[in-house]
Design a protein around this nucleic acid. Structure first.
Lengths: 333, 333
DNA sequence: CTCCGGCGTCGAACCGGTTCGACATCCCAC
DNA sequence: GTGGGATGTCGAACCGGTTCGACGCCGGAG
C-alpha cells in the first residue's frame, strides 16, 4: 500500500508537509501543493483510516443501532435505515450497522473500542437500557423514539400525540361518533415503545372530549394473525363508521380484508392511518394518513449528531417532535 | 481512555506482556495472566480498534454494498441485509453499510482506506462495475448475484434457472397448458440483473419442451402501477389457468387484485411464486413458492468471505447456486 | 539598516496497539 | 556437569498518519 511517506518522497517534501498540503491546516505554497497533489494522484494515495483514527481519534463512522423485533413490521424500519445512511454519507460519514440483540452491550462495544464517533438509536423505548449505556459511553448520540429520561441525549421523533389528536379531530369534523383504533401489537406496548401509547392516549383523550366513542384494539404483526385480528375486530365493531390504523402490518393487510368483507372506503367506512409517502408507494395504500417522515427524522438526527460531534460543548440538547401533517387521499366521508 | 500501557503499569508488567496475555499468542504464566485480566477488568480496558487496525491491518469489519433501485421492492433487500449482518456478528465482524449510488467508487473508497477486510455485494448485475473495482482492490469479496465474469470472485445465488424449470414442471405435472409469467420490471432486465432472465429463459425453454404456452410479461415495482399492470395482464390472458409470479411487488399485491376480480385460488387459477418464508410472513402470501433462502445465502457468503480473509491463498473460488426447494401451500390445481 | 511578523517547511513526538528478537530461568537428558 | 529446548518476559521497532515547536526566509515598517 502507498503511504504518506511515499508521497512525500515522490514530491520531495517531508511527511508533515504532505499532511498539511492535503488538510490545508497550515499555509503551503502553490507549487508545493501542486507537486503533492500530483504525487498523490499518480501513486493513488489514500489515507489509512485506522492510522488517521489513531492520530485524530475521529473515525468518520456513525453507529446505527437497531433491532428487528418479532412484533414489528420490518419494511417500516428500512425507511429509517435508508434515511440515516444517506444523510450520513452526504456529510462524509459511514454507517456501522449494529443489530445484535444486546443493544446496551453493543453500544459499549462500539464506543469503548472507538469504532464510531457517535451513534443513532432507532426505536428507543421508555426504559431502554441502551440509553444508559450511551450516557456512560460519553459519546454523542441521537435517538429516534422517546425514553423516560431525556437528560443528556437528543431526541427526534414524530409528535405522535399530536397525530392522534389530529386524526380524531379530522374524523370528528366529518361527524363520526364511533371510531375503532387499531394500535400496535400488545408486545410493543409491553416493550415500552412510547409511540404506541402516546398516540393511543392522545386519541382516547381527544375522543372523550368530543364525546366520541373510541374503541382501542391491539393489532398483530405477522400473517396470518394480522388478517384474522382485523376480521375479528371488524366483526365486533361493525357499527363503527371510522377506523384509525396505527400499525404497519395491519394497514398493509387492510385493503384485501376490506375487499373480502365487501366494505367500500369511504362509503361504508372511513379509514385514516400513519405511514410515510414511500411506504405507501411500496404497497397499495389509498388512505388519508399522517406522514411519518422517516426521511426528515433520519436526516435531522444525523445532522444534529454530527454537529454535536464537531462541537460537543456548544451544541444545545434537542427534543424535537416533528409536527404531524395529514395527507388527504380521500378515504374519509 | 485507558490504554494497554495503563494495564501494564497496573499489573506490573510490560505492554507486550499484556498484549500476549490477552491474545494468547505466546505462553504467559498463570499468575501473570491473572494479574493482567484483573487489571483489564478493574480499569475497563478495551482495545482501540484504530490502533489495532493500524498494527495488524485487520479491521474486523466487512463492507456491505447495496443500492435501493426504484425498480426493486425494498422489503426483499432487507432480508439479505439482516442475514449478512447477523452472520457477520456471529463471527466477530461488524458491518459497514454502504449505499451510495456510485458503487464502484464506494468500493475503492472503503478498500483503499482499509476500512474493511472484505466486502459483500448485493444484487450484482451482469456487467456490474463494482466487480471490476473489487478485483482491482485486491480485497476478498463475496457476491450475491451473477456477473458476466466470475474470475477471482465468489458467487452465492439461488439457482434461478433451476427454479424456473421446477415451477414449470410443477404446473405441467398438474396438466396446465397455458401459463402467464410475471417477471421483474423491464428496468431490472435492462440493468442486467441476471436473475431475471435466468429464471425467465429457463421457464420459457422448459415450457417449450413440454409444449406449454408461456406468456411472459413485465411486472411493475411501485403502486399503483403494480396493481394496474396485474389487472391488464390478467385481462389480456384470461384463458390461462396458471400464473408464475417472479416479482416481489406483484406477489404482494396479488391477493387483493385476485379478490377484486373474484378469482379463486386454486380453483380458478393456480399460482406459484418465489419468496422466502419470512417474506411470506410479513404479508399474506398463501402461495406455493420456491424458497429464495436469503438467510442461507447471506450466511454462506459471509462464512466463505471470512475464510478467504483468514487464508486468501488456500481458499478455492466458489460459484454456489443454492438448489431451489418448493414449498407447497396448496395454491395449485 | 535593523527589527519584526508572516509564510512555508521540516523534524520529532505521539496516537495505542502488535510483534520480533533477545535473554534469563528452569528442567531434563546424556 | 553440561548442553539444549521450552517457558516466560522485556524492550524496541513498527504500523501510517497528525500536530506541535522551531527555524529560515522574505518583505515592509521604522
Amino acid at each position: 500500500m502507498v503511504t504518506i511517506g511515499d508521497v512525500a518522497r515522490a514530491a520531495g517534501v517531508s511527511r508533515s508537509t504532505v499532511s498539511y498540503a492535503l488538510s490545508g491546516k497550515r499555509p503551503i505554497s502553490r507549487e508545493t501543493k501542486e507537486r503533492v497533489e500530483e504525487a498523490v494522484s499518480s501513486l493513488g494515495f489514500t489515507v489509512h483510516s485506522g492510522a488517521r483514527a489513531l492520530a485524530t481519534s475521529e473515525t468518520m463512522v456513525l453507529g446505527l443501532l437497531l433491532q428487528f423485533h418479532e412484533d414489528e413490521f420490518p419494511p417500516a424500519m428500512l425507511q429509517y435505515i435508508l434515511a440515516v445512511t444517506t444523510a450520513a454519507r452526504k456529510r462524509g460519514y459511514d454507517i456501522l450497522m449494529v443489530t445484535e440483540p444486546d443493544g446496551a452491550g453493543a453500544i459499549r462495544r462500539v464506543t469503548s473500542s472507538n469504532m464510531v464517533d457517535g451513534v443513532v438509536l432507532l426505536d428507543v423505548t421508555h426504559d431502554d437500557p441502551r440509553v444508559d449505556a450511551l450516557r456512560e459511553s460519553g459519546k454523542p448520540g441521537a435517538l429516534v423514539g422517546l425514553p423516560m429520561d431525556t437528560e443528556g441525549v437528543d431526541i427526534f421523533d414524530l409528535d405522535f400525540s399530536g397525530a392522534g389528536r389530529m386524526l380524531v379531530d379530522h374524523l370528528h369534523s366529518l361527524g363520526h361518533q364511533e371510531i375503532v383504533l387499531i394500535s400496535p401489537p400488545r408486545d410493543v406496548f409491553q416493550r415500552g415503545a412510547a409511540y404506541a401509547w402516546r398516540f393511543r392516549d392522545a386519541a382516547l383523550e381527544r375522543a372523550a372530549r368530543h364525546g366520541i366513542r373510541l374503541h382501542a384494539h391491539y393489532g398483530e404483526s405477522q400473517e396470518p394473525a394480522v388478517e384474522q385480528s382485523l376480521h375479528s375486530i371488524l366483526d365486533a365493531r361493525d357499527q363503527a363508521g371510522a377506523l384509525i390504523v396505527h400499525n404497519d402490518a395491519s394497514i398493509v393487510a387492510l385493503p384485501s380484508v376490506l375487499e373480502d368483507r365487501g366494505v367500500k372506503v369511504p362509503d361504508d367506512l372511513s379509514v385514516v392511518s400513519l405511514y410515510s409517502r414511500n411506504f405507501g408507494r411500496s404497497f397499495r395504500l389509498p388512505y388519508t394518513a399522517v406522514e411519518t417522515s422517516p426521511d426528515q427524522l433520519g436526516q435531522e438526527a444525523v445532522q444534529h449528531l454530527i454537529r454535536r460531534i464537531a462541537d460537543p460543548d456548544n451544541t444545545p440538547p434537542v427534543v424535537r417532535f416533528v409536527p404531524p401533517e395529514i395527507t388527504d387521499r380521500g378515504s374519509t366521508a
